[in-house]
Each structure stands twice: as structure tokens, then as C-alpha cells.
Write a protein that binds this DNA or RNA. Structure first.
Lengths: 237, 237
DNA sequence: CCTTTTGTTAATGTAAGGTTAAACATAATT
DNA sequence: AATTATGTTTAACCTTACATTAACAAAAGG
């Protein structure tokens, strides 16, 4: 069974450095798509599925952070590595807030980059249900389409969901009838687990409950101190 | 929901730096155990469960890499961050080979470290769910689901259990028909064995008895001075 | 008996969750 | 550029859930 090479999106405006890096990665059995700026990077990202993004921070038209944010809106899971010439602390922090997996200062050693890539890919490999690519769910009399972000009741007109509403409901659906730990949603969706994100999540739970009200059999239950449970009553025989 | 603080094992031989770092981490709501060298670090590691290890590379008696290898033998999952004074490439590679999650050069910015810790914990949050212990029990005509914390009688509507109720009943169920020593519950659940926790436990025993009343065959018996016994009468012919 | 241990109920204090609205931020439209 | 719409966070306030403690009653066991 010939297993597929991992796909990397490399966004780097310096043509020399970019090409060298691309070749080096390809020599190491990665499929690399090279975009020359943030704009192009985002276009390419939308067109395909990638296992990893390597983004230069300083680029014309669209810098790495802005690009990362756009990428995150479409995909909460792809690992992102930032490349940067200068080691400014603010940048590093900004990067982690956007959900960076790692941060490298140029010039860096290519072997080190390879190691980091390997380590990140390995971590991804062990991730469970949560990163599943399932985007459609039946929730009682509702249909959730998580890719298009809408919820339909009895096949009626779709209700549009905001990104946060959508991801939260999707996480709940992935754990249907089971515990969806608070911490999981906070780290996966809000990327931080503190008092405020926690309160924010409660607000979203309230919104979802309102959406789901039309089907009395569908409930979001709280398990005090643990998390929430999406239950469909009379669901299984 | 500020649940249990994350536990960090910090192994750092420089007493000043180590203490400062420990205090800083504790201020940020981590429980930190500080070991002064590799030997001590491994002892402490064996004695407890940690969510993260931060290891200095250069230490007397046992360096960070050797320690990391030993730790990996016992636990393939704990994230490890290395601290090192000099930025030698070989070291970095060696670290990644041992399964490092990250690598920081001293001096580093403490905020950056915090961000890295958060990022790593987030990644780990995903696969923590996998724990495969026993969480479901049949107790006479009751069903206990210890993960979702509820108790069902004859498949009726579930009664919600509080965390303490739940854990206590689970412990009893694990020792069904056998002695469940007082001391065991107190150390496992209350993490302290004194007059007050003991009284508290009695209160919970009373609550459980009330829950279990519907099935006359199920009883929690006291063994004076020893502990309790969950018995199912006529259970095994 | 009479001291120690256990049983039970109620009162208290704290933490977590629910709900709503206002504030803030950002994108979309004019 | 100004205005509207949309999405998210923060704040405030209220309710519920939990755990501990106190108080008193009842058994157990020397």
C-alpha cells in the first residue's frame, strides 16, 4: 500500500529562498506547493487539502498572520509553522495566538525544520475523532451541514450558523450522546481555556439550545464540572 | 470551570533560575514540582503523573537527554520541553529524536514559554479522552454510568450523580460484595483521611443509600471501623 | 454504661452554569 | 468614509449544583 506523501503549502515571497526550501522539502518526500505571497497562498489553500502550512511572516499584500487567520477560519486543525527574519517577541506571541504550532527564526537549519515537521505530523497522526473530516450530521429532526454552516429542520429552510456556533455544534455531534468535555471545545475552538472563553462558550450553548428547541427530543445537557452532552431521546431503539 | 491545575515537572539545577521559573509558572496556575538534578527528576517523575516536563539539558549526574529517554520508557505521551544555554544544532536534533515537543534557548522570554506550554497542552487535550477504565456497572436493577455520572433504575430516567457520589459509588461497585475500606475512599476521592473528610463520606454513603432504595436487594453495609460493602442479595444464585 | 463510630438531616458557602444585554470588532454595503 | 449587518466577547445578575460542616440520634463494641 503506497501511502500518499504529505502535502505542504509553503508561502514565501523571497523567490530564491522559497525555491531552495521547496526543493529541499521535496527531496525529503513531501509534496510542496509554493505560493509567492499571501493572496496566492490563500487561493491555493482553498483549492486543496494540506497537511501543513509553512508561512513567512513578512510578505507584501498579505502578511503571514493575516493569512493564518484566514486559514484558521476555514480549517481549525492544519498545523502552521511561521518563518520570520527577526525574533520579535510580539510576533511570536501573535503567532501562537493565531494557533501556530511552531515558530522558526531565519536563518534556521533545514534539518531542524525537518525534525519539527516530523514531530508535528506525528502528533497529528495520533489525534482522534476530533479531527475527523465528518461534516454532515443528523441530529434528531435536524440536519447539520458543517461545511456550509447551516442547520435544517425537517428539510425546511436552512438556518445559517456563525463559525463558532457551527464548530461547537459539530463537536457536540461528533460526541453524540457522550460527554463532550468543556476543555476540549475551549482548546479546539477558542484555543484558550480561561474564565472568559468559558463564559463565551456558555453563551454559545444557550444559542444552540434555542436553535434546537423545535425538536423536543434533542437536548444539550450539562455535566457539572465536566462538559456537555448532546442527547437525542429515543434515538437508539 | 477552573478544574484541576496542570502538573509540571521542572528539572533545573540552577537554584536561582529554577526557583524563579517555578514561581512564575505557579503564578500562572500550574502546579510545579522542582527537581534539582536528573536523578531527583526521575524519582519525582515515577512518583506522580505529570502533564508536562521541562528539562534543563546540562545538569550534573544525569543530563536532560538521558532523563528524557528514561521518562519516555515509562511514558510515551508526556510532552517534554528542553531548556538549553547554547544553541547547538546537534543538541536540538538529539532532543527531537528523544521526542521533544519543543526547544527553548536560554535566556528566553517567559511569556513565550507560557504560550508554548499552552499550545502543547492544547494539542494533548485531544487524546486525553482515550482513557479505558471501567465506567459502567450493573448494580442489581440499576445501571451506573460513571463517565456520564448517572444512575438508571430499570432503564428509567437517569438520576444525575454529583462527582463525589459518582466516584464513591464507583469505588463500591469495583469492590462489589467485598470490603471497600474507608481509608481507600478517603485517600482516593477526598485525598485526605481525617475526621472531617470521614464525616463527609458518611454523608455521601447516606445519599447513595437513598438512591439505591428502590431495589431492596441492593444494600450498602457498614463494617464497623473498617469500611463499607456494596452487596447485591441473591446476586449470584 | 460510656466512648467511639456511624447515620441522617439541615444550614452554609462557594463554584459552575444559564440568560440577557451591552460593548466591541469586523466585514459588507452604500 | 459612513453606515449596517454580523459575529464575538464581556459584564451583570440569577439559579442551580456541590461539598463541607454542624447538630443530634443511633449502633457497636469494649
Amino acid at each position: 500500500m503506497e501511502e500518499q506523501n504529505k502535502k505542504i503549502l509553503l508561502v514565501e515571497d523571497d523567490p530564491n529562498f522559497g525555491t531552495v526550501l521547496k526543493d529541499y522539502l521535496m527531496m525529503n518526500d513531501y509534496d510542496v506547493v509554493h505560493a509567492k505571497n499571501g493572496m496566492e497562498g490563500f487561493e491555493k489553500f482553498k483549492k486543496d487539502d494540506y497537511d501543513l502550512c509553512i508561512l513567512d511572516v513578512m510578505m507584501p499584500y498579505k502578511d503571514g498572520f493575516t493569512l493564518a487567520k484566514e486559514i484558521r477560519e476555514k480549517n481549525t486543525d492544519v498545523p502552521i509553522i511561521f518563518l520570520t527574519a527577526k525574533a520579535m517577541k510580539e510576533d511570536v506571541l501573535k503567532g501562537y495566538k493565531v494557533g501556530a504550532d511552531d515558530y522558526l527564526n531565519k536563518p534556521f537549519d533545514s534539518e531542524v525544520l525537518l525534525m519539527k515537521i516530523k514531530a508535528i505530523m506525528q502528533r497529528k497522526a495520533t489525534d482522534s475523532v476530533v479531527d475527523s473530516k465528518q461534516f454532515e450530521f443528523k441530529i434528531g429532526r435536524f440536519d447539520l451541514n458543517s461545511k456550509l454552516r447551516f442547520l435544517k429542520f425537517d428539510g425546511g429552510k436552512p438556518i445559517k450558523l456563525s463559525p463558532k456556533e457551527n464548530e461547537l455544534l459539530r463537536l457536540l455531534a461528533l460526541h453524540e450522546n457522550d460527554l463532550m468535555p468543556r476543555e476540549l471545545a475551549l482548546t479546539k475552538i477558542w484555543r484558550d481555556d480561561n474564565y472568559f472563553t468559558s463564559r463565551s462558550m456558555d453563551v454559545y450553548i444557550a444559542k444552540l439550545r434555542k436553535y434546537l428547541k423545535p425538536d423536543a427530543k434533542v437536548e444539550i445537557l450539562n455535566i457539572h464540572g465536566e462538559g456537555f452532552r448532546l442527547v437525542i431521546n429515543g434515538g437508539e431503539s
